[in-house]
Design a protein around this nucleic acid. Structure first.
Lengths: 338, 338
DNA sequence: GTGAAAGCGCTAACAA
DNA sequence: TTGTTAGCGCTTTCAC
């Protein structure tokens, strides 16, 4: 199949290729008859506009780079699902890159996007990323940029996040109101902003409700199901009294529940448990695990829409960046209902 | 920030832009000194090669279109994770498109990929897609194409699939060997190849083990947790005797387990249950649900590698297409262990 | 070892 | 209403 260009269509119709180009782009100054003839010939010959050529000429690719840590984490794939849906409806395509939680790989992604001349970048930074990193250059090149969930420090950019502080607060307050008093919080050992926020919410909820802050109840570690189990074992071994656990995410909460069941502690009667993220399994296990929904698809749609508004503005870095904060939804289930 | 091109670097060094181009591409005929000078100047000026221009000229974009039904389904996001990982290591970037299970949207995706002049397409068709559809044209244009999991009928193309027949057979045989005799199979109402294969495996396993085929035990429906519950209710209401259920996927299996528990039937003592897909929750619920692992990340990596081999061959449609069939892994858990 | 020049397929300003 | 023309930033052939 020979490659058909506007020149082939032009020859076929004995007109010039610029007339063909205009007809295809529905230019107002072209007669209906010409447009019709051009379109028919284009269809007949199997013409496909070459986006590469038009991008080179126009300076617009209609491609948005989306950079996420990893797509096998349901949080990120849901958000990307939301982003793609909205972008697609608006004529944009998604160029996808995974940082695999590594700064080096993240910077490679940014570099690829810059070389590819994407019309913009939507990202969520890796756990390793400390400062603005490679995103500084994106800003300098005046390429529109928006973040979701994990936003770099030291770079004033548009973003959609959930209120992790509120999430931590809501979870803890809910446990307090349910009558739990000695609430363990399992956090991550890494110094990540959103983790710190959840911790801050936990602390403030305790304080506001007149409960003491007990350092023994704040555990830092990797997050995994196994770590949740280990935490419970360690706390019991040390003889630390506790009657509830609020974890950084759901897998740890699941581990906590499993270990408590294993040692014969009833959830929620003896110990209440609340996770974070609303992973699919939390509603299916028994007891169903209370958690905070992060509104993932919505987050993707919001960041895409925010991005489209930004694109319309032009001058991407002269306005005050729009920052949307979604309130997480507390889902009270069996694990904390007594 | 002014846009830097090879011409700017050339001026800076008083050489021609073609020398710069060669230096940047590590052309053997350029002196080490020139290369060094060019690279330093490029770095200093903040030069980023324009992939759009090089693609237009070379006819290669180094972009692969990946077309999947939807990314909020963990099966697909895991596969895409695998594809991106391998492609990325090999210098390719992923252009992502979701068909949302609609043929129309799928064809729009193919069209976008063709216009974008992707170097190839990896896809999994929508549930609506019947024949070769828009993929026929991809073939005609001699653009390399590979499928995973859901492959179009009537188009002899490379693919990576799992052996759904074997999966159906393994699940059913496992239940038979565990002593179950009246095994219900919940299938989909749509005429989808992979669903039919699982059914065929179920039927053959029964026959080979000398068990009768009972049409009352074969249920067709939508797949969802709720449908699993409904099935159990209906079977009990009709008084159909059964002692095991093999479902098309895990959510239905979960519904089956929930409903059985609700009516006081013990799983696995009274009724054994096996799902399909190894969703994250299956290992976390209680009883843990036996299922078939579809080796999703591996599938993505395999299809990417298959694709890279295909690219090397050139002449994409003159060889016999390579078809890889992965054997699903039976995960025997509590729900079918008695 | 380097330079000159053509052209990939389009967009868009200017002309007629 | 249509034609002419000049690039966008590269790759690549041919020349010296």
């Amino acid at each position: 199949m020979k490659k058909i260009t506007i020149l082939d269509i032009a020859k076929e119709l004995n007109i010039t290729f610029s007339t063909v180009a205009r007809a295809l782009n529905d230019h107002p100054a072209i007669s209906a008859a010409t447009k019709k003839a051009v379109r028919e010939t284009a269809d007949r010959l199997g013409y496909r506009p070459n986006k590469v050529a038009s991008s080179l000429r126009s300076g617009k690719t209609k491609i948005i780079g989306v950079l996420v840590p990893r797509l096998d984490v349901s949080f990120f794939s849901s958000v990307v699902h939301g982003i793609e849906g909205v972008m697609n409806e608006n004529g944009y395509t998604i160029l996808l890159y995974q940082s695999q939680e590594s700064v080096k790989q993240e910077n490679k992604g940014i570099d690829t996007f810059l070389r590819s001349r994407v019309d913009g970048i939507i990202a969520s930074i890796s756990l390793e990323t400390e400062g603005p990193g490679g995103y500084e250059e994106v800003k300098e090149r005046n390429i529109p940029l928006a973040f979701f969930d994990r936003v770099p420090q030291g770079l004033d950019v548009p973003s959609v996040t959930i209120d992790d502080y509120r999430g931590g607060f809501m979870a803890t307050e809910h446990l307090i109101k349910a009558g739990y008093r000695r609430i363990v919080h399992i956090n991550g050992y890494r110094n990540v902003h959103i983790f710190n926020e959840r911790l801050r919410g936990y602390l403030d909820a305790l304080t506001q409700h007149g409960l003491p802050i007990d350092e023994d109840l704040i555990v830092k570690g990797d997050f995994s199901l196994e770590f949740g189990r280990k935490c419970v074992r360690d706390l019991l071994a040390k003889g630390t009294a506790f009657d509830a656990v609020f974890t950084l995410e759901d897998f740890t909460a699941m581990g906590v529940v499993q270990e408590l069941k294993a040692v014969g502690k009833h959830v929620p009667k003896e110990v209440g448990v609340v996770g974070f993220a609303n992973e699919a399994f939390t509603s299916l296990v028994s007891p169903a695990v209370s958690t905070l929904d992060q509104r993932t698809v919505e987050m993707g749609e919001e960041v895409a829409q925010l991005f489209l508004r930004l694109l319309k503005k032009g001058n991407y870095y002269s306005h005050k960046p729009e920052k949307i904060v979604l309130i997480p939804k507390l889902l009270v289930r069996e694990s904390s209902s007594r």
